[in-house]
Design a protein around this nucleic acid. Structure first.
Lengths: 143, 143
DNA sequence: AGTTAAATTGCAATTCAATCTCAGTTTCAG
DNA sequence: CTGAAACTGAGATTGAATTGCAATTTAACT
């Protein structure tokens, strides 16, 4: 399914579904969780496919452009991505103590953000909300 | 006031309030708005003070560490900062076309986030919300 | 004021993610 | 099949950020 979407996207842009691009695509969807370009590059090699770092970067941009992948955040070590197809939108809470990442979703929150965008004549397309603090476990451990 | 806070912070860490550090500090608080390290470096030069790029970067880290300055976001062109002392909490909308940064604050949004934290037994301390899209100007320009 | 150890600076070198260049390769429409 | 256009990989390049280091500055203590 992802493949179909990607091939469609490429077709519409006059781009070609090369082995390298498909290798990147399949690897991105072969696991769950966050990743950075280098990690992905190594996984692709490991999987026996081949695609240079340059191709990984180039393909990643395409995947983001067609909405199959999202750039989650930028760290001091580079960009972090996650695949989004088949996963609904969510935001993150990150525990400063143990690093646990809790995903959450709130319809109300989404609507409120739309309202705020409208108030500012801003056409919002994506957002990132990251709440930092302490998770239940670490809260009690503290006291 | 900022100066007092910063001097205190330096004192506690056994660091020295050098001309360069103070020059960076004053320049940061001499204007309102967002900035990147290079822009700050040029402003300092312009103001007749002197501090190398290295010192600007090093001092900026200290200012973030002591809470007077906040790293707002990371763009493809580098980090963006803002001074926080004397400014209340707000979130950002960033235009993908022209890079404009719009600040906003919503009481409702804050409350809603508190609710969501409570639902997840999470003790939230800070958050970052960044909405990306197109600002009014770039919206109309597009069509 | 003078001395000295520790902190600091600036420059240049370095790092590292990301992008670009370009010659050789692959794709696919006709 | 064939050729034009699209792609690729390797290495060069970019640019923000960091670091090493010799020279300089700071400030605590005489």
């Amino acid at each position: 399914m992802e493949t179909k979407i990607f091939r469609n996207f490429l077709g519409e842009k006059g781009l070609k579904p090369t082995k390298e691009r498909i290798a990147v695509l399949s690897e991105v969807f072969s696991f769950h969780g966050h990743f950075d370009p280098e990690y992905l590059y190594l996984r692709i090699k490991d999987a026996g496919s081949k695609a240079s770092r340059a191709s990984v970067y180039r393909t990643l941009s395409l995947l983001v452009e067609c909405g199959l992948v999202k750039k989650v955040t930028r760290t001091e070590k580079g960009n972090i991505y996650e695949h989004t197809y088949g996963h609904s939108h969510h935001d993150h809470m990150i525990c400063d103590a143990c690093g646990e990442i809790i995903e959450f979703y709130s319809e109300k929150l989404e609507n409120l953000q739309d309202e705020i965008c409208a108030e500012n004549s801003f056409a919002g397309s994506t957002h990132t909300l990251e709440i930092r603090g302490h998770c239940k476990k670490c809260r009690t451990k503290q006291s």
